[in-house]
Amino acid sequence: MVEKTPLLDLFTYLFLILGIFIVGFPIIYSLIAATLPLEEVSKVPMPLVPGNQFMVNMTEAWTRGDLATQIFNSIVMATGITVGKITVSMIGAFSIVYFDYRFRAVAFASVFCTLMLPVEVRILPTYEMAANVLGPLQPVWEYLHMNDFLSWFSGHDIDISLNWSLLDSYTGLTLPLIASATCTFLFRQFFLTVPEELCEAAKMDGASPMTFFRKILFPLSKTNIAALVVIEFVYGYNQYLWPLLVTTNPKMTTAVIGLQNLIPMADDLPEWNVALGGALLVMLPPVLVVLLMQRWFVKGLIEKEK
């Protein structure tokens, strides 16, 4: 810093270590608990020396919680949301920034209005929507007398009701969460900073819009994409309310929700070692993503909220 303050520096480091300890404590403690046998973990206070039951507890959590299936589901969902969100919003922003057409402003405004409107505030109707995506089209179908028309056309009695349910499917887990005004907005802001000359030069060389997008805009956006990948992966993996609603089949549940089955209730054996072992396993994928891609993550987090 500016002046020499040895005493203050000492306190700085002391407090910093204390802070890191407080933030890390739940994890350290859970890690220790996950290595202990049942008798040890239910002692009060729990011993702070790690035991040798780590693998046993982990295996138990892995099989009892069916974590293989659930973590797989979570990763599929997180990847689906990440890829879908980034693709949809990137081409959407490309359309808004690089083309001039009649409904451009309307399109942008209608997407922009959904900024910050989380799925939590409209759960029930969105759930009904997911239960039958074609529901809103049913009145149109009936209005057009399509059933009569088809009956007449084929000579048989036909009664079609439009029904396409997204419940208990990967599509249902990902699709409703893909629409994101934030990502579109971010890409729009970024595209606006791309020098005009690049597009002019590309046009002069006779590049089509998609060539320009593929060869120039996409490579330029790589760091932005990397940053968003981290944030959206964590977002998707940690979703709670939506997967809780759309999945009823235990084979389709995501890991974060499935974990609840491992928590010991009042009458159960207090197998906290297994529960916490499971919790550690489940949190591993997003934590690894954040730590390994830390540089992009910090950049992305701050850019996204600007």
Binding site: Y98, I178, A179, C199
Partner: peptide
């Protein structure tokens, strides 16, 4: 909008379509 932009009849609509469809189905309608 950019000073240099593309002109195309269908492409921009096609590009914004997924976003609009999802927003309408899962935001506005609900």
């Amino acid at each position: 909008i950019k000073r240099a932009f593309f002109k195309s009849k269908f492409l921009p609509y096609l590009l914004i379509l997924p976003q609009i469809v999802i927003t309408l189905t899962f935001f506005y309608w609900p």
